[in-house]
């Protein structure tokens, strides 16, 4: 059973996110809106204390910060320091500051090998913890994705759950026009992963999907391909590459707030 109160986080955390970005006058907003639902499902709903969660697409750090704010690890006061001089919360997660942020991430393609190493350690120790890693579809361009994927299959890491935020857009264009679809279901299936393709904004699909994969002890590493919309929840940002980078001016900020309130009844 899914606790119904979790659905309200979809709106609440989005509002918190854009407020943070707005006061910081910072970009990467659409990247965070794209993966926040996957994070609510994996990090807030599913993750147990012994599990690990790695946000490999470090440019969505703000979504990690609001989730850890919700779980109580990052205070409201701390959250206000986002992007400011002297902060523990820079634009990409920093090392050695919070238990919930075990690794500094931001250079793409680092989180998957680390998560595979954690899963391997859990396997060696025969403990039942899960290792989660969230990547972006653009990030799967990185060669380490394919090194780590083969490693995970070879070592039968069925305690490893890879989440791909597949919004179809990357730094300077559509993924299909750059290197093609490096996050395609077929490729991951062929490699030997158990693949689940879902709507990456539907919390029920996310939570039940992870649940199903956790129970599947078939020696196959898992991947959830979350089909998402970059900028999800803010109409003028949706599927617009420029919102990978742009900050919000006061007028647009108000419009974004209204959009989120309307869509999520937040």
């Amino acid at each position: 059973m899914i606790d119904q109160s979790i659905y309200s986080l979809q709106g609440d955390l989005r509002l918190k996110l854009i407020e943070m970005y707005h006061s910081a006058n910072a970009g990467h907003i659409a990247c965070s809106l794209s993966c926040i639902d996957l994070m609510i499902g994996a990090l807030i709903h599913h993750k147990k204390e012994e599990d690990s969660f790695i946000l490999s697409k470090g440019h969505a750090a703000a979504s990690l910060y609001v989730c850890l704010n919700h779980t109580g690890e990052i205070s409201n006061e701390e959250l206000k320091t986002f992007y400011k001089n002297g902060t523990k919360l820079p634009a990409h997660p920093a090392a050695n500051k919070f238990t919930g942020i075990p690794f500094a991430l931001g250079s793409l393609g680092h989180g998957f090998p680390i998560a595979a190493g954690i899963a391997k350690a859990n396997q060696l120790k025969k403990n039942t913890a899960y290792s989660y890693v969230l990547m972006s579809d653009g990030e799967t361009n990185e060669g380490t994705t394919w090194e780590a994927a083969h490693f995970a299959v070879m070592h039968k890491l069925d305690n490893l759950i890879v989440l791909i935020d597949k919004n179809g857009l990357q730094g300077f264009g559509h993924t299909k026009d750059i290197l093609g679809d490096t996050a395609s279901e077929e490729k991951w299936q062929t490699l030997g992963f158990e693949v689940l393709s879902i709507n990456g904004h539907d919390l029920e699909q996310i939570i039940n999907g992870i649940d199903k994969l956790k129970k599947s002890k078939n020696s196959k590493p898992k991947v959830i391909i979350g089909n998402t919309v970059k900028g999800k929840g803010v109409s003028f940002m949706e599927n617009e590459m420029k919102w990978h980078y742009l900050p919000l001016d006061p007028g647009l900020y108000q419009q974004a707030v209204n959009d989120i309130r309307k869509q999520y009844r937040a």
Partner: peptide
Amino acid sequence: KNRFINTGVAEQNMIGVAAGLAHKGY
């Protein structure tokens, strides 16, 4: 035995995996 791992011709993954293992106490 299983603490000897050949990660193949993939040095970047080798170091990332090592970091994950070290994080868990190895």
